[in-house]
Structure formats: C-alpha cells, structure tokens
Amino acid sequence: MSFKVVAQCPVTGARAGELVTSHGVVRTPVFMPVGTQATVKAMAPFELKAIGAQIILGNTYHLFLRPGEDLVEKAGGLHRFMNWDRPILTDSGGFQVFSLAELRTLSDDGVVFRSHLDGKRHLMTPERAVAIQEKLGSDIAMCFDECVKYPSSYEYSMEAMKRTIRWARRCREAHGRQDQLLFGIVQGSVFEDQRLMCAEALMEMDFPGYSIGGLSVGESHQEMYRILDCLKGVLPQQKPRYLMGVGHPSNLMEGISRGVDMFDCVLPTRNGRNGTVFTSRGKLNVKNLSLAEDFTPLDPECSCYACRNFSRAYIRHLYKAGEILAMRLCTWHNLHFLVSLVEGARRAIIEGTFPEYKERFLRVFEGDSADG
C-alpha cells in the first residue's frame, strides 16, 4: 500500500496521485460517496460502478450499533457483506458521537454515549474505534478524534485538539491490521496555530495519510480555505490528504487547488432525495413549477443515466407523485456530477490545464442559475 503524486499543477499546487490499497488503486483527486450503513442511499453497487465511483465510505458509529462489527466480520468483512469489491474507507465515528452532545459524556479515556436507536449506553475509546474498524475490514480507517462545533472558543478548541493528538497516539499503538491504512485527523477549528500544532504532532507519528476534520461545520467558505492554505505547505507531499465531509462543487475545486486529494460528503445523496440537483450552471430544484413542461435533461452537458433518458418534466412528475424513482434518478445524477467533476480536475492537472478548468467551471457554475 502506497501513495505517489504523478502530476502537480505548478500554479495552484493541485495534485494528481495514485493511492494503492488492498482492494485496488484509487486515482486522486477523488470524491467518495458516503455509504453510512453499508449502503449508499438509493444506489446499488453496480450503479456506483457505472458512475465511476472508485471508493466509498462506511460509518463506524452506525455499523457498530447496527448490525454490529462482529456480524460484519462473520460475513467476511464489509466488502463481502455489502458486495463491494473496490476500496472502502471507514470514519471513526467521532463526528457522530460528538454531534450527540446531549447524549454523551466526554473524558480523556473516551466517550460514554447513548445510542440514538434504543438509548443503551456505550463506551467508545480510541482502542475500541480501531478494533471495530479492523473487524469491519475497511481499506482505510480513521483515528478517533474530537470534532468541535463551530463557533468554538479558542480554549475549548485547544483542549479538544490536544485530546485528539493523545487519542491518535493510542490509535496508532492499537492498530495492527497490515492490510488497512490508518489516517490521522488534523483538528483545531479555525485557529491556524492549533491546526499547525496538531499537524506537526501527527506527522511525528508518521501516519500513512492525513485527514483534515472539523471543517464545513458552519464556518464560512473563506475560513475553510484559509485553514487549507495554512496546512497546504505543511502536510507531507508524499502522503494523501483527505478533507472530511466536504462535497459542494465549488469547495471541491477550491480544495483540489489547495492540494487536497480525497473528499466525501452526504450532500449529493441528501440533496437528491430532496429534489435538488447540481448542474453545470448551478443548483436546480426539480420540484419547481417552471419545470412542469420542461422536456430537457437535468443538465444538457451531463452524460449520466438520468440525463440521457429522462426530462426535467418527467422527474418533477415523479416527485409530485411520490415515486421512489425520482429520488434514485436525482441521487444518481448528483453522484455522477461530482465524481465526473473531480475526474475532470485530475485530467486537467495531468494535462497542465487545471487553472483554466477550475476558472471555467466556477465562472459558469456560480455565475448562472439552472432554474433560469
């Protein structure tokens, strides 16, 4: 298992790389669809392959609660359990645990929390988060970290960041699965000195990859970009960089231009279920009355299954009729849109045209209205 940068934009620092895992090579930059409960909502594995998904996510917190890591291990691991033979990344469950502030008690040992399913109490420690992910058998696992809400005071963020470092060290010591990569997570909210302190401490532990957590939690886009700029020249060049929970198209372009290799987000599937799609000219609400007699594709420039076969008017009709196919088609389109956008960025980096690719996309996407 290894990572190498095969091309880099001399203007922006955007990278094209190859991440070798036990279930195949991931060509970066890459967008990773989120399969929280061992399934990407509304999508079958063969459909994900059809849109070009190289790697997907599973959620440690949810799979721990249901069906349990022991059952998944008995099934032969997460890949066999969900019939996905390409790489899988599992997060540590830290974000989910800490989003349940009213249901958990935090200490240096770990987190005692109540299940959102049945109220049962559980203790999640760094060692247990690692053990669960080893049983799940993902190709890439995450350290257990503390993700603070935004805004956060400087003092509380500092405390959480230092705890994240201590937990990362315990995760590193507990991790023993040789066919699984373990990534450290850089925390520190919007405070540059804390981000740098955390990054330096994690690099001393020499993780195979580094995640940037605690962004896209309410801060402005400019604050996010400032933190990415801060870390751009610090994180190791020959290690993959993963920006967690970010999936807005503009954020993807800006993240890639700041040297980020990997992204994930529930946004495309959640928006798809709610009737909002990304197009080359911005967002489009498929439920709008103005589309009732619009027989053009969701995005005339898109080649996905939904755009090749159905009109805006038809998909709007499906939503109004309460048909499940509406959510499936919009989810399919959104995932295809983001996967293709990032694939295009990779090609542009290799061809030496990334600045033009980024400028052209953002000018059209942010400048026009798909509803208009």
Results as ranks from 00 to 15, higher is better:
L182Y: 06
L182S: 06
G184N: 08
V186G: 09
V186P: 05
Q187F: 10
Q187L: 12
Q187H: 11
G188R: 03
S189P: 01
V190I: 15
V190L: 07
V190G: 02
F191L: 03
E192K: 15
E192I: 15
E192P: 02
Q194T: 14
Q194Y: 12
Q194F: 10
Q194S: 13
Q194R: 15
Q194E: 14
R195Q: 02
C198P: 12
C198D: 07
C198Q: 03
C198H: 03
E200S: 12
A201T: 12
L202K: 02
M203Q: 13
M203S: 04
E204K: 15
E204H: 10
M205E: 15
M205V: 14
M205T: 11
F207M: 03
P208V: 04
Y210M: 01
S211T: 08
S211Y: 11
I212E: 00
G214Y: 00
L215K: 01
S216E: 11
S216W: 11
V217E: 07
G218R: 06
G218Y: 11
E219A: 08
S220D: 05
S220E: 10
H221Q: 14
Q222Y: 14
E223D: 10
E223S: 03
M224T: 14
Y225H: 11
Y225E: 09
Y225K: 02
R226F: 12
R226K: 14
L228F: 07
L228V: 11
C230R: 09
C230I: 05
C230T: 15
C230K: 04
L231S: 03
